Simulated scan of single mutants.
Amino acid sequence: MLEKILENVINAMVPCLDSGQLEKLNNVLYIEFHGVEVVEQCTELAATGEDGDEAKIRMFLASKKAVNRQDATLRQYTREIRSMLGFLGKRLEDITGMDLRYYYGIMRERRHIKMSTMQTRLHYLSSFWDFLITEELVHSNPVKKVGLLKLEKTIKKPYSAEDMEALRSSCTTLRDRALVEFLYSTGVRVSEAAALNVGDIWMDRKELIVYGKGSKERRTYLTDSAKFYLRRYLQVRGKDEGVSPEEMKELPLFVTLDRPHGRLTVAGMQYMLRGLGKRAGVKNVHPHRFRRTIATDLLNRGMPIEQVKEFLGHEKLDTTMIYCTVKEEGIQASHRKFA
Score class of each variant (00 low, 15 high):
Asp224Pro: 06
Asn68Ala: 15
Gly302His: 11
Pro158Leu: 06
Met269Glu: 08
Arg108Leu: 10
Leu230Gly: 03
Lys90Met: 10
Leu234Arg: 04
Ser244His: 12
Lys157Gly: 00
Ala166Trp: 02
Cys16Arg: 15
Glu315Phe: 07
Arg292Pro: 02
Leu45Tyr: 01
Leu17Pro: 01
Arg292Ser: 04
Ala62Ser: 12
Leu6Trp: 06
Leu100Val: 05
Ser127Met: 08
Phe131Trp: 09
Lys278Ala: 13
Leu276Pro: 02
Thr48Met: 14
Thr43Cys: 12
Leu167Met: 08
Ala47Pro: 00
Leu298Asp: 06
Val143Trp: 02
Leu251Asn: 07
Met303Asn: 06
Phe311Asp: 02
Val326Phe: 12
Arg218Asp: 09
Ala72Lys: 14
Ser244Gly: 05
Met248Tyr: 08
Ala55Asn: 11
Tyr77Ile: 04
Arg75Thr: 13
Leu137Glu: 11
Thr325Ala: 14
Pro158Asn: 10
Thr173Val: 07
Glu32Asn: 15
Ser169Tyr: 01
Arg82Ala: 06
Glu136Gly: 09
Lys213Ile: 06
Ile81Val: 11
Leu230Arg: 03
Arg219His: 12
Leu88Trp: 05
Asn284Tyr: 08
Arg69Asp: 00
Met84Lys: 01
Arg232Gly: 08
Arg292Tyr: 11
Leu100Glu: 05
Gln119Glu: 11
Leu174Pro: 00
Arg279Lys: 15
Phe338His: 12
Asn197Trp: 00
Ser83Cys: 09
Met115Glu: 11
Trp202Tyr: 14
Gln21Arg: 14
Thr265Tyr: 05
Ala333Arg: 15
Glu247Ser: 12
Glu44Gln: 12
Lys114His: 13
Tyr30Gly: 01
Val67Lys: 13
His335Gln: 10
Ile155His: 02
Asn27Glu: 06
Leu276Glu: 04
Asp99Met: 01
Ser63Glu: 13
Leu125Lys: 02
Gly86Lys: 11
Ala194Leu: 07
Tyr104His: 08
Lys4Val: 12
Phe228Cys: 11
Arg79Ile: 01
His261Ile: 10
Arg263His: 09
Val255Gly: 03
Asp240Met: 15
Leu167Thr: 03
Tyr102Pro: 02
Gly187Arg: 03
His286Trp: 12
Gln270Phe: 07
Glu329Gln: 15
Lys206Leu: 10
Glu310Ala: 09
Ser126Tyr: 01
Asn197Ala: 10
Glu328His: 10
Glu40Lys: 15
Ala72Ile: 12
Asp53Ser: 13
Met115Tyr: 00
Lys216Ile: 09
Met272Val: 09
Gln332Gly: 00
Asp240Ala: 12
Arg111Lys: 13
